[in-house]
């Protein structure tokens, strides 16, 4: 201590050391932050470069053709894009209402002591690795569907126009339908988490005043909570959609990996991520590899659009919150 007091003339020197340390630490953290930016740009650039041979050869044909033939070196992404979009759409159809119900239950209905355990349990669904969903889907869920659910759905709805498409095909358990269901379970925790967080920021004054006017819990949810949290809810849904679109391992196990447009959702299909997982390491020839990277680029662009929209909506919500 005494040395510090005695060394008052050292003060400028120490300040210089402090400023030097500051410059270094500032630099290190800033560079780390820039790495994040560099990453997302690097991903985009490397995908475009890798995909270029295929894209320049096929052009628009790549996106609209359903041909995928490594033997004749003719590639089109339509089947994979179709499978990705349809399985994700089916997943959202199930996951959105379910997540809404769970979030409402956690924030409005459940007794206080129950809220944390239930939130945690739902969050754990997101912690389970996707490969586990895939294995479970293939060995447990798919046989269950093919034995008990699909034959019944086939009989009940198979002949109805339009809706029938959802429920037609061989009841083998493997296919776009199963992929959609497994995806639904996987994205429920993500959508629920966002919805729960946004529902929690609704000022209790608003809720209490409508309760005081005699509104039921459902009416409060529909006319107070939902309008107030609209942007957040949509943002959460988009976030879940982004997850579903890019999900790989679970889909690879159950979608069936068939390179033709399915005639019904029970038919096997393919998705972008599943095609990549199955074929990339075995791809021989520059064009084949490049076509697969082009598939990755398509997936990247689709998810980027969805995720950017989701984040913009959520940003708008937090801007509201700050006011």
């Amino acid at each position: 201590m005494s040395a510090e007091y005695a060394g008052q003339s050292l003060a400028p020197e120490r300040r210089a050391i402090g400023a030097f340390g500051d410059r270094i630490f500032h630099g290190v953290t800033a560079v780390s932050a820039l790495i994040v930016l560099a990453l997302i740009m690097g991903i985009a650039v490397s995908l475009v470069i890798g995909a270029w041979p295929a894209l320049s050869k096929f052009g628009w044909h790549f996106v609209v053709s359903s041909e995928w033939n490594p033997v004749t070196d003719d590639y089109g992404a339509l089947v994979a894009i179709f499978g990705t979009l349809v399985s994700s759409a089916l997943a959202m159809l199930i996951a959105v209402p379910v997540s809404f119900g769970i979030a409402l239950f956690i924030t409005e209905l459940a007794p206080l002591w129950m809220r944390r355990p239930i939130s945690t349990a739902i969050e754990l669904l997101a912690a389970i690795p996707s490969i586990i969903y895939g294995m479970w889907g293939l060995f447990v869920f798919a046989p269950f569907l093919s034995d008990y659910v699909q034959p019944w759905l086939n009989d009940a709805f198979g002949d109805v126009p339009i809706v029938g498409y959802l429920f037609s095909g061989p009841p083998i358990g493997i296919g776009v339908f199963t992929a959609g269901l497994v995806l639904a379970v996987m994205v429920i925790p993500f959508i629920t988490a966002v919805m729960r967080d946004t529902f929690e920021v609704v000022p209790s004054v608003l809720k209490e005043s409508s309760y005081a006017l005699g509104a039921t819990t459902w009416e409060v949810a529909r006319s107070v909570i939902l309008p107030y949290t609209k942007t957040g809810v949509i943002g959460g849904i988009m976030l879940g959609l982004g997850r579903a679109l890019g999900e790989t391992m679970a889909v690879t196990f159950v979608i069936g990996n068939s390179h033709s447009i399915p005639n019904g959702l029970f038919y096997p299909g393919n998705s972008i991520s599943a095609t990549l997982a199955n074929e990339f390491t075995e791809a021989t020839g520059e064009l084949y590899t490049s076509a697969l990277i082009a598939l990755g680029l398509v997936l990247f662009v689709i998810t980027l659009i969805v995720l950017v929209l989701a984040r913009l909506l959520l940003l708008r919500l937090s801007a509201q919150e700050g006011r």
């Binding site: 994040v36 995908l47 890019g246 790989t248 990549l276 990277i293 990755g296 990247f300």
Partner: peptide
């Protein structure tokens, strides 16, 4: 950075695999 970090947080992991493969 914050915005794109959030995007990266949900980006498909298979795309990250492709990126590292190329790099």
């Amino acid at each position: 950075v914050r915005f794109f970090n959030d995007v990266l947080l949900s980006a498909p992991s298979i795309i990250i695999g492709l990126f590292v493969y190329e790099i």
